[in-house]
Design a protein around this nucleic acid. Structure first.
Length: 844
RNA sequence: GCGGGCGUGGCGGAACGGCAGACGCGUACGGCUUAGGACCGUAUGGGCUGGUCCCGUGGGAGUUCGAGUCUCCCCGCCCGCACCA
């Protein structure tokens, strides 16, 4: 994509139109003027510079599904403020933008509109780019990446092959999640509560041969390295930890009692309770059950019906059904610790996918097992005695799952349950019956998609050579344009031209893989591509990546807490292991922003509650749109859209425009040379504003309070202008205050910032200036009002010199007329004096 | 069920354990105007006996000289995970 305006570089500010003298904040003229100027100067292009500190500010790239709304406006405004602020702080700032341009919505919309997904996507991209341009976003458009273009997906495919070479991409037949509406499979992360994350259709299980990425190989590191992410919100870290779901325990093999020598393997985190296992339970889909059914013995018909019923329940019903149903399979096995023969049940509360799909039932120490045992009359045996737990099974009304001392456990009696975990595992190992192990909730990442609009998986199937990866020098495997992409079977399978190929190994006819990759593969590495978008030897230049990465500030929605953010971490670790990058985590700091809602719901086309930034920019301007979305709430919170609030911001920017013209235009002529009290006050206001805005932006991204600090100083300026006649104003002070104000507002309202910087006669672009500093001594008030309390109730206030000591405050307070009646006749127990704050007199 | 977050005016939201409600919206009144839905100013948590008096941060207790803030219990809302062995 070409940028919108790309005229040759010309002289700088000299060519800029002079500021307009008038009484009106003419945002249309101002914004157009500066956008043109930025385009002409290519003001936002950046290059690596080893002599300068870098700062990589990144907002999650959008899916170009149409026009953008105020939610987008908000998040890009956040990114733009951070980028412009950091630039003013002296950093070499990378602030790129691109398009997560492959994906189902393009295909679905294209089918509906009768347009090709590519054309639809490109049209949307152009439209959104225009909108971002009109909002004054400071992107280096030379670095734009578009995931659906061959020069990008070539490298997505290359990375797939890297994974393949490293044994991390593999094909497997497995029961997978199928969304009937989207007509494709989904990764586990893309199933929310048993339904498709996009269209909320309940997913069904299908047995298919598919491509997976072995993310589970990285489960430990993905979990452990969360500790490195001190700049991430806790809730995201928690969500990832939950998702990975590491569970340490042991597997145990229970020999079947039929003399076959076969064993039934379970996973448990409580091997210390082994002697309390009085029965076994397997999932209805467990192979053992299937075998019993096909063997056709007594009871097999009942078993078949039971397994059928469980299987036919959707994922949602299965996991939300609290009633435990079970059935004795008739099989028996031996508890290796007690030598007892115990029954094997099958039950609906056992999940095939988790652990081994079988558990040992320890009713005394697991609540689910307890309920199940009571329902089916199975024995309950206490093997752990907690400090307050009942000693006998008969007294139990619920399971005891806490720690305690092992009882009824033979050789293990007397051990603490903690020791028992070790000792039982050691014993199992010497007996060859089990060992300690760790399992995860995380599954391998299913990346095959039976749809058209994605990056083709670069492999070929040859009758003789089997699965053959496409050689790197033949990449990209181009996605053909002319394809019947209506869903059904994989659309690419219908394109004979695409499918038919020759085997890279033996040269004989072969067939291409016709599935495409999950778009989350494309978005797992785009942040690397921004560093060197034209690079054509590898996905990215090592040198550029070493300079720019990791991303210093990543900004995006909480909905990707697990999905995109987990996948990207995985990719980064693989690239690190492959020696392609030097870091192990891609995103140092993460800001999870809130949504902009209207009528209580996130803005979306389907809900019809979209407010377009265009509506706002036309009526009030881009600066108003930006400042309002930042002012309405702290960035991590949702906020409900209101039109009336927008006008308030428009008023504020108009006030800024006018006060700068009134006080600062024409060089701020005349005035008194020596600053008086009013001058000191307004100067203090400005220094306070700088301090507050700096800390609010830097420390916690509270742009709302940063903006309110600027509003306070503007209010102070109006009071100053009204109360101090021109002849008595100090030009130096006025100038300093106005400069600080304009510099501080520049990242928020960049067009107005440039214009007013010019009005003040500033050199060059306001965005090339240094972020202002403040003087702590000036910030401190000369006089402060100290509250005087008696027993915690305010009785008076007194103005004293700032920094007045405790002793003096105490005396002052006790002498106050309004205080005396409350103190007289009582005993002063204590006086708490906090300088510059308050005095609290405690009486009895 | 487990984990996390949140509850403050009519509204969005501010408050290192130290004067609750900054800032903005809305509302009311005044000014300026031929006019204004522009602009400037003043007021704006509630109550009454109009005192810088009392009450007020979902409810209740506690710690403290002092609690929106810390602790415990309860109520309500939101999010994540959820029969995870």
């Amino acid at each position: 994509m070409q940028t919108r305006v790309s005229e040759p570089k010309t002289a700088g500010a000299a060519g800029v139109a002079p500021p307009q003298i008038g009484r009106r904040y003419d945002f249309r003229r101002i914004e157009k003027k500066w956008q043109d100027e930025w385009d002409r100067r290519r003001a936002f292009d950046v290059d690596a510079d080893p002599d300068r500190l870098k700062y990589y500010c990144l907002v999650m790239f959008p899916y170009p599904s149409g026009e953008i709304h105020m939610g987008h406006c908000r998040v890009y405004s956040i990114g733009d403020v951070v980028a412009r602020y950091k630039k003013m702080c002296g950093y070499n700032v990378l602030h790129p933008m691109g398009w997560d341009a492959f994906g189902l919505p393009a295909e679905n919309a294209a089918i509906k509109a009768g347009r090709h997904p590519r054309d639809w996507t490109v049209a949307n991209i152009n439209r959104i780019k225009e909108q971002l341009h009109d909002l004054g976003m400071s992107y280096d458009w030379r670095r734009e990446v578009t995931a659906c273009f061959p020069d990008y997906y070539r490298w997505t495919q290359w990375l797939f092959l890297l994974m393949y070479r490293r044994g991390l991409a593999y094909r497997k037949k497995a029961p997978v999640n199928w969304c009937p509406t989207c007509a494709t499979v989904l990764a586990n992360e893309q199933v929310v509560g048993g339904a498709c994350w996009r269209c909320e259709t309940p997913v069904v299980k299908k047995e298919l041969e598919q491509w997976f990425l072995r993310i589970t190989d990285y489960a430990d590191r993905l979990l452990d390295d969360l500790a490195l992410l001190t700049g991430w919100p806790d809730r995201v870290l928690t969500m990832q930890a939950n998702w990975i779901g590491r569970s340490r325990g042991a597997y145990i093999d229970f020999p079947l009692a039929d003399g076959s020598g076969e064993r039934l393997r379970v996973f448990t985190t409580r091997q210390d309770t082994l002697c309390g296992a009085t029965y076994m339970v397997v999932a209805p889909e467990h192979p053992l059950v299937a075998r019993l059914i096909s063997a056709g013995g007594p009871g097999s018909e009942e078993l078949r019906r039971f397994a059928e019923r469980a299987r036919n329940l959707s994922e949602i019903d299965r996991t939300s059904d609290p009633e435990k149903e079970g059935l004795d399979t008739g099989l028996r096995c031996v508890n290796p610790a007690t030598g007892e023969t115990i029954p094997i049940y099958t039950a609906n509360y056992i999940l095939l996918e988790y652990g081994t799909g079988a558990v040992m039932g320890v009713p005394a120490h697991d609540q689910r097992d307890f309920e199940f045992a009571r329902k089916y009359g199975l024995p309950v045996r206490v093997v752990i005695k907690g400090p307050d737990s009942p000693g006998s099974a008969d007294e139990m009304t619920e399971a005891y799952d806490g720690p305690g001392v092992m009882v009824n456990s033979g050789r293990f009696d007397g051990l603490s349950s903690e020791e028992g975990l070790e000792k039982v595992a050691a014993w199992l190992e010497t007996e060859g019956l089990g060992a300690k192990t760790t399992i995860y909730r995380l599954r391998d990442w299913l990346i095959s998609r039976q749809r058209y609009w994605g990056a083709p998986i670069p492999v070929v199937y040859c009758e003789d050579c089997g699965v053959v990866p496409v050689p790197e020098d033949e990449l990209p495997v181009m996605l053909p344009y002319q394809v019947d992409f209506t869903p059904g079977v994989s659309p690419l399978a219908r394109s004979e031209d695409f499918v038919r190929t020759t085997c890279p190994g033996c040269g004989r006819p072969a067939r291409r893989e016709t599935d495409t990759m999950d778009t989350f593969v494309c978005s797992s590495w785009y942040y690397l591509r921004y560093t060197s978008p034209g690079h054509d030897k590898t996905p990215f230049s090592r040198e550029e990546v070493d300079y720019w990465m990791p991303v210093d500030q990543y900004i995006g929605g909480i909905e990707h807490a697990v999905l995109h953010l987990l996948y990207s971490r995985f990719f980064t670790k693989v690239l690190h292991d492959a020696g392609l990058v030097g870091f192990v985590e891609p995103f140092t700091n993460l800001l999870a922003h809130g949504m902009v809602t209207k009528n209580g719901a996130a803005m979306s086309k389907s809900k019809g509650n979209i407010v377009s930034p265009d509506e706002i920019t036309v009526r009030f301007g881009a600066d108003t749109a930006r400042v309002f979305t930042l002012f309405a709430a702290p960035p991590d919170k949702d906020f409900e859209w209101t039109d009336s609030g927008v006008e308030g911001i428009f008023r504020f920017l108009g006030r800024v425009w006018r006060i700068v013209h009134d006080l600062g235009g024409a060089g701020g002529a005349g005035g008194s040379p020596s600053p008086d009290e009013a001058d000191r006050d307004i100067l203090r206001s400005a220094h306070r504003m700088v301090r507050k805005m700096t800390l609010d932006i830097d420390r916690r991204f509270n742009f709302n309070t940063a903006i309110s600090a600027a509003m306070e100083t503007v209010n102070d300026l109006y009071r100053y202008a009204e109360s101090v006649p021109p002849a008595r104003r100090s030009p130096a002070v006025v100038r300093e205050v106005l400069e600080k104000l304009v510099l501080c507002l520049a990242p928020f309202a960049p067009h107005l910032g440039e214009e007013l910087w010019q009005v003040l006669g500033g050199e060059g672009s306001v965005h090339d200036q240094r972020w202002p500093s403040w003087d702590e001594d000036l910030v401190r008030a000369e006089e402060v009002e100290v509250a005087v309390q008696v027993n915690g109730r305010i009785r008076d206030r007194v103005v004293v010199a700032a920094g007045t000591g405790e002793a003096e405050l105490r005396e002052l307070a006790l002498a106050l007329e309004k205080v005396r009646p409350h103190v007289e006749g009582r005993k002063v127990v204590k006086v708490v004096a906090v300088p510059d704050r308050l005095v609290n007199i405690v009486v009895k």
